[in-house]
Design a protein around this nucleic acid. Structure first.
Lengths: 139, 139
DNA sequence: GGAAGTACGTACAAAAAGGTAAGTACCAAA
DNA sequence: TTTGGTACTTACCTTTTTGTACGTACTTCC
């Protein structure tokens, strides 16, 4: 973690470096939860939807077909807590809340979406491997 | 999914495009599981560990401190099924099994590790946002 | 009156994921 | 004999996540 960087005054230590050096303890890395938030099903779709700009709760829900209000609320709250989403409340009845990506949110979305798209585009290769593994003459 | 591409003869349709067009149904996207496999706690650490080359089960387990044999087995099996890991069995007693990244595995690992490292390096920003949100004068 | 809209929160249940411990089968060493 | 090594598998339990249904509070429209 970043506390290692402050001790050694070296470049920031990444997860990748720690695995390589065998420094990784079993304690849960706090940034893991951030990774989970941005790669979770509804979290990912929420980020991608918000790339097109400001959305309200209902707009997001319709755009992300199939998400329950509960799960959408949960995802929005987590992403907001991580600093990726800005939530603006207009004090009105009925409620009026707008969600936008923060600059940090735009950055992480680009990266997560790129990964998801790569997997999507290479999924055919994955399917091929799976079919080969399912053949009875393997293992 | 890729079946859309075959219907329209257009460029491959990515998840990102589908969200934008509001084409996303609630049915589970099969490539979702691949994303979950490579971003899961033990899956990610496994991929990163294997970047340094061939490993045996016990080596991986020691390098990835804290993973149970069960979870490591499970992650290796999933990643192998996705085509990211090659598993070579030497028929011997005691068992001798070697794991390596496939070319596809190297590609996905680069991408996932880059994302994880980005989150790690920007985690301090996330922390700052969280502290601000925890202040009693917010919301 | 009910229905629709807004954006949630809550209670409980169901499903999924993960953890612990023991087992497998053979060999070698203490 | 026990212990340690190898790489899993299995049974059972616990924890986490997700889903369903209902509730909140106000306005407008039929």
């Amino acid at each position: 973690m970043l506390e290692d960087a402050s001790l050694t005054n070296a470049l920031p230590v990444t997860l990748t470096d720690k695995v390589r050096r065998g420094d990784l303890s079993s304690e849960t890395c706090p940034s893991r939860q951030v990774l989970k938030n941005v790669t979770s099903q509804w979290g990912l779709l929420t980020l991608i939807a918000l790339r097109d700009g400001k959305h309200r709760f209902g707009e997001l829900r319709r755009k992300i077909g199939g998400v329950s209000e509960k799960m959408l609320t949960q995802s929005l709250r987590a992403l907001e807590a991580d600093g990726f989403i800005d939530r603006k409340v207009h004090h009105s009845i009925p409620p009026h809340v707008e969600y936008t990506l923060t600059p940090l949110g735009h950055e992480v979305t680009e990266r997560v979406a790129a990964l998801a798209d790569w997997i999507e585009l290479n999924y055919e290769k994955v399917l091929t491997v799976r079919q080969a593994l399912a053949s009875p003459n393997i293992r």
